[in-house]
Amino acid sequence: MSPSDFARNPGTAFDPDWFEGHAVNTPAAERRAAQLPARRSLKKTYQAAWLVNAIRCMDLTTLAGDDTEARVKRLCAKAKNPLADHILTGLGLERVTTGAVCVYPTMVRAAVRALDGSGIPVASVATGFPAGLTPMNLRLAEILYAVEEGAAEIDIVITRAHVLGGNWSALYDEIAAMREACGDAHLKAILATGDLQTLSNVYKASMVAMQAGADFIKTSTGKEGVNATLPVSLTMVRALRDYGARTGAKIGFKPAGGLKTAKDALNWQILMNEELGRDWLRPDLFRIGASSLLGDIERQLEHHVTGRYASSSRHALA
């Protein structure tokens, strides 16, 4: 299924009544987040199935200053075949792919070529990633460029100052303009939650982004001092649930930055299942932004199949 087959978020008029006065109880959010990993024990075959699902929901990512077309081509090869043949056979699977490949705008065309015929979409960061401090006309032009190059999904970054200053209408207008520039490409709004200071700000920014038409809300660029955490993710998921209760729209969620181990992949899926249900364990509504995570998942699945751990060099990412 291509991203164009997924239901879009039409957005709503800007309405601060949906979030003004909403205060997040930080200690309660932290307690709930700490309890989540213990609420479901995943062992053996069940754990393997959840780890395979994490691969299906993964945005396999390279966002390095020394990215080359050759590196992107290798990453795309890994996205098409993320597990070694003997692991697939041992799991009784014929084919698994990642949910998408995420690259810089200038690498989109190379990724599109490398993924041709695979059904895997290309996502591109844009809008002055990671700081988002370039002029607005240039940020919109970058979206248009990435879409023209073939990106099916655009991961935009917001102006954090709008959140920190409580200028919610400016944040809404900014994201709405980005949504329009995306055209048919889906918009994933990166909130850079590590920069937003409070969970209440995280909730409000999440709600504004969805009102402005974001198809996904995403925690982090991966470049902040603090990236995805379970309390922040819980806060965003609760905002997503509240938005859905008001509008009937199903909005996707993407944690990114700091998810490095198979245990992390399980914990975030448990969060989605406990708070939103099984619908949010599909790649149309849940993505994991990852670069190194896949290697650890592959090692755990090899152990499940063979009873042995292979060295990390056996599972090179790209």
Rank of each mutant, 00 (worst) to 15 (best):
R40I: 10
N81F: 08
V147N: 06
D15E: 15
R109P: 03
P82Q: 11
I120P: 12
A38M: 04
W18Q: 07
L63D: 12
L60I: 11
A77K: 13
R95G: 02
G11Y: 03
T98W: 07
A38K: 13
P130K: 05
D66Y: 14
T68C: 13
K80I: 03
D15N: 15
L93S: 02
V125S: 09
C102I: 08
L36Y: 04
G119P: 07
D155Q: 11
E142G: 02
I143E: 07
C57Q: 10
L83P: 08
P130W: 03
W50R: 13
P82C: 01
I154K: 08
G99M: 02
V122R: 07
L138R: 10
A123D: 01
A79F: 11
M58Q: 12
A34Y: 01
V24A: 00
G11R: 03
L140R: 14
E94M: 07
A100Y: 06
E149W: 06
D17K: 15
T68N: 13
T98C: 15
E153Q: 14
A114E: 15
A70H: 09
I154D: 02
A54V: 10
V157A: 04
A29D: 06
T97G: 09
A28Q: 14
A64V: 09
S41N: 09
K80H: 05
T127Y: 08
D66H: 14
T68E: 13
T106R: 14
M136K: 14
T134L: 13
T127P: 09
T68L: 13
L88A: 02
M136T: 02
E148D: 15
A84N: 15
Y145L: 01
C76H: 10
A38I: 04
V108D: 00
A33G: 07
Y104A: 13
T98H: 03
R39D: 07
P105L: 07
A151P: 11
V24N: 02
A131Y: 13
P135T: 13
P130H: 11
A49N: 04
A126F: 00
D116V: 04
T134R: 13
A64Y: 12
H22G: 05
L42V: 06
V72Q: 10
S124R: 06
I156F: 05
F19N: 00
V101W: 10
V72C: 12
N9H: 00
L83C: 02
N9V: 04
E153N: 07
D15M: 05
K80L: 01
H86R: 12
G117C: 12
A100E: 04
I156R: 05
D15A: 13
D67V: 13
L140C: 01
G150H: 01
R74M: 10
V52A: 00
R56V: 03
T12C: 07
L83K: 08
A111R: 00
T12E: 08
A28F: 01
R95K: 15
P121C: 10
M107T: 04
M107Y: 11
D15P: 12
D85Y: 04
T97M: 05
A64M: 11
E69G: 15
E148C: 08
E149M: 03
P16L: 05
R139K: 14
L140W: 10
A146S: 12
E153K: 11
S118T: 09
A70Q: 14
A70D: 14
F14L: 08
S41R: 14
I143V: 14
I120C: 11
A152I: 05
